[in-house]
């Protein structure tokens, strides 16, 4: 209910704003909705949203898997930490734009370049978070697993991953929002489809209703995924914790 209320408030502010700013600069909600429906009818909206979602999924999975593995290694092995640390600092501070442009220059305007560039942007934060998690692993439970001769897979599943899961969830959450932001830039600069590409087209044509139609559809998809996928997943992970009153 509070969510609906805050959505209604958003619509109201937008509508009033469009009355003041004029329809050219800020089209009213019905005008944008009309464009949205037209784009949906033609299938374009879903095609571009799908392309963007596919890139997000691939880049996110790639970065999380690699980031978790590297972070775990750096948290457990001193030498790996020493070797990796300068690279980590470099990647953490490298602007996303630089990575994307260099990726397109070196690998061409290809899908691989786009996904790699997005993944590389997300990678260092995942590594840092998981390294923290690996450092905090409980040595007492580790001894328990050793004494009872737990096979590696079982140890990973029952001893290590549950301890890392809050860190994985944190990395996923911050990583996902980063990926949402970067994917559009990567598409704008070098892909012939996706929400970022469409926004680029709308910008060049100064077609503000189109621009808003795509931006808002994209925002809606992000919201739906966050509430239907990410939040339930986080709740499941902390199922065993005694509930706070």
């Amino acid at each position: 209910m509070p969510r609906l209320l805050s959505f209604a408030l958003f619509l109201a502010v937008w509508w009033i704003g469009s009355l003041f700013a004029g329809d050219v600069k800020l089209p009213s909600p019905p005008a944008v909705l009309t464009v949205m429906i037209a784009e949906a009818r033609s299938g374009d909206l879903f095609f571009h949203l799908g392309a963007t979602l596919a890139r997000v999924t691939l880049a996110f999975t790639l970065a999380m898997t690699l980031g978790a593995a590297i972070g775990y290694l750096m948290g457990r092995v001193r030498l790996a930490d020493r070797l990796g640390d300068p690279w980590l600092i470099l990647l953490l501070n490298l602007p996303a734009l630089v990575v994307i442009v260099l990726a397109y220059i070196w690998a061409g305007l290809t899908e691989v370049a786009a996904i790699a560039a997005i993944a590389i942007n997300k990678l260092p934060t995942a590594v840092v978070t998981l390294r923290e998690g690996a450092r905090a692993l409980d040595a007492a439970l580790d001894e328990m697993a050793t004494v009872f001769a737990m096979p590696p897979w079982s140890k990973l599943r029952h001893v290590v991953l549950p301890q890392l899961s809050p860190y994985i969830a944190a990395a996923a959450r911050s990583g996902l929002s980063l990926v949402w932001k970067i994917v559009l830039v990567a598409e704008l600069l070098g892909r012939p489809n996706g929400v970022g590409f469409e926004i680029g087209v709308a910008f060049q044509l100064f077609d503000i209703p189109l621009l808003l139609a795509y931006s808002l559809s994209f925002a809606a998809v992000v919201l739906v995924i966050e509430t239907l996928l990410v939040q339930p997943f986080e709740a499941r992970l902390s199922r065993w914790r005694p509930r706070a009153a």
Binding site: L141, E143, M150
Partner: peptide, 24 residues
């Protein structure tokens, strides 16, 4: 095969009693 009862219980907090035993 070693069975070790540590000074502190050292159970897996995220697994039930039965799972704790079955996993080991």
């Amino acid at each position: 095969r070693i069975g070790f009862v540590f000074q502190e219980p050292r159970l897996l907090p995220w697994r039930s009693v039965e799972e704790n035993v079955r996993i080991a």
